[in-house]
Structure formats: structure tokens, C-alpha cells
Design a binder for these strands. Sequence first.
DNA 1: TTTTAATCGTGATTTATATAACGTTATAAA
DNA 2: TTTATAACGTTATATAAATCACGATTAAAA
Lengths: 210, 210
Amino acid sequence: MKREIPVAVIRRMPKYHRELLILDQAGEDFVSTPKLAAATGVHDSQIRKDIGLTGLRGIPKKGHKIKDLISAIETFLNWNDVSSAFLIGVGNIGKALLNYTNYEQYGLKIIAAFDTNPEVVGQKINDIQVFPVEKLENLVQRLKVPVGVITVPADAAQETADMLVKSGIKGIWNFAPVTLDLPEHIILENVNLYHGLGVLSKRLKEKLNP
Amino acid sequence: MKREIPVAVIRRMPKYHRELLILDQAGEDFVSTPKLAAATGVHDSQIRKDIGLTGLRGIPKKGHKIKDLISAIETFLNWNDVSSAFLIGVGNIGKALLNYTNYEQYGLKIIAAFDTNPEVVGQKINDIQVFPVEKLENLVQRLKVPVGVITVPADAAQETADMLVKSGIKGIWNFAPVTLDLPEHIILENVNLYHGLGVLSKRLKEKLNP
DNA sequence: TTTTAATCGTGATTTATATAACGTTATAAA
DNA sequence: TTTATAACGTTATATAAATCACGATTAAAA
């Protein structure tokens, strides 16, 4: 019985990956889990367990070969084969995502964007063409694009999601602050910028007036 | 011994809050936890426990008064008294955050922004003035601003954080994809847009090639 | 009124996750 | 070579979180 990988693990991996890139660029060759622990704030035995899941084995007294570990993590996260994606909603967050250039390293490539606003439709942002939303369904179907990135305002998010689902999307990366109602088989990943703010706010005030 | 509120709870609260606002606007008066559960995807007993933490008590067979619950959550999260904040880094994400207007509802108010780029310095975005970073330390100190929002590129994040800490900041809301090295007493909340992408990518490929 | 049933609050149980502990192993110093 | 030890991998333990389960409660129907 194939054990499901916990989300927590998948979330920690990119953290290690980032630190490893830095160490690699600094000319380092090996890294130990205690050292990685110090850099990332994650416990060393936790890191050993996580690394264990990639199948890579370290060397006592030395640690892990950084380059090997980097590619082991990339393989683990399937960042090697890149999925294409459409982005819907070219507002500020949408633009921020479009301008980000390193998705491919993370296994995703945004190949087109969609919006209703005639001011942005037709534009190119970071070489990515913005189409009118009317073309969305047809293009998802025809190009078999597996991922939709939703960066529309909250009140348009559900209908956008419905449209994507109807056209056969496989996964949705949702930035709108709503609870999307989706069929079971769709893979959903929510990013809510403001949830973190809630936590910060609360902790801060706990501290200031205890 | 005062039990620390788990982060998971604090993260779920805004979710309920959102749904409650919708129900309230729809003219509803009461809501039950099974109903909230259906809308948010969180288990009903979980919701009951969370609500219990706010001190509010429901009515069997009816549920909770929506308006009361909304304000109980707001009080719980300390969204009533608003903290002021500075935002550093007026790129796309920075702009997206500046254009968002509902922070105050979440207990935070961005009162000024900072950047190095002369093209944005001096501008006003959503009525918030952008200052040169040189003025940051002095202003944090003088105005005793408790929160810094870091939206600078990764390689400038640590030095920005250092600057903020030096000037006496209390909390940092960090959007840069780095592990910030901060003194214990600083409250830190990280938002990493791309971690979620890692999870999505992995799950998607697990599904497509099992 | 009395009865019914939905929903409540919470203690018990399960599951998941993180930490600690430790025997093993391979490098590097003696 | 031999020895010492840092870091490994992994099992055991502890902590935390989510879910279940159920008696208590109260609004609404009979």
C-alpha cells in the first residue's frame, strides 16, 4: 500500500531546495542536516526523514552532496516535467505572477492569460499574451491545458472555476479568497494572502496587550 | 496556564468569517455548524470547537446568530483595533497589496510604502505615498510603526528585515521567498506564493502518471 | 402540552506530525 | 592502522490536531 506523501513534507521541500541553491552557488559541496536545520528552522531529524522520502542516502560524518540533493528534490516534486497553465484575471496579483520568471523550475509554465478588461486584453506581459475570457473554454479544450490559475476578484472566482472545470482542467491554483466548490477529481491548491495576515494580527496584539 | 491558540485555528477563522458575511448579506439570521461545514469544507465538530474558543455559545436546533458570530470572530482575531504598517518593495506584489482596500477589516492599515526605484518613489498608489527606502528607519522609529510588509526581491529581503528590526519593528509579514533570520521576539508570518505551486505540481503529476 | 429531532458542547478516540533517542557507519585525525 | 566522532537512518515516544460519538438542550411540530 503506497503511502500518501503528507502535504507538510511537500511544503518543506522547496524550502530546502532554496537553501541548497544558495549553498551550491556559494561553492559548497556537501551539507549536513544539522546545518540545513540551522538555515531553515526545521528540525534535523525531520529533514532526514524528508530526504529519506526522496530515496537519496547521505554519508555519515559528511552529509549529503548538494547537487545530488537538489536534483533528488526536483525529481521528488516532479519539477522536471513542466505542465502548461492558463492564468485568468490580469489584475495586480495576476501581473505579479505573470512577471515571475521561474515557474518552469517549479514545474509550471503559464502560456497565456485571460481577462475581461479591454485595457489589458491584447497586451503582452512578460511575453505572455492576454486574451479575452470568451476564448478561455475553447482554448483549454483544444490545447488540453491541465492547470488554471485563478487571480480574478472573489465574486468572479466560482464562475471562472466552473468554466475551467467544464473545459476539462485538471488542477486549479486559486488566489481568490473564496471556498471553491469543485468536483472531487480536480486538484485544488488555495493561496490566501490574507489568512497569514490574520495570524500576524492576532499574535501581534496578544503580545502588545497580553 | 493559558493555552496557546493553535495557528490552524487562527487560519480557519477568516474562512468562517467570509462565509458568514455572505450569509449575512443574503439576509440570513442564523447558521448551524453543519451548514457552515458544507460551505467551508471544515468538519462541523471542528467548527464547533473553534467557535467555542471565541466564547460564544450557540442555540441547539437553531445554530448561531450570524451577526454575533461575525463580531465574536473579529474580537477573537483582534481585528477591532487596527495596527499600522509600512510596506517595503513596490513591485507587482507590493502594488497588489497596496491596492487591496480591506486590510483594516483584518486589523492592519498600510500607511506608507518604500522603494529604491526612482520611478515609483514619489508616486501615490491607492492614496498611499511611496517614499525612498532611506527614510524607512527613521520613520519606523519616529512613528513607532509595529508592522513591516516585505515585498522586495529575495536578495534584498534579509537586509530589509534587518533594517526594520533595528528600527524597532514588532512584526513582519514577509512575501519574499527566503528564510529570514530574525531575533526571537519578532513575530514573523511568511507568505510564499510558490510553495503551493509545488504541492499542486506534485499532486497533478501523481495523478497524470501514477 | 408533550414529543420530536436538529444542533449543541465536549470528552474519548484516532490519526497525523514532529521530536527525541540511539545503534550504525564512514570519514578524518591520531 | 586504529580510534574517535559527526552525521546518518530509523524506531520509539510525545505532542498536536482532527474526527467521532453521544448526552444535553431547546425550538418547533404534533
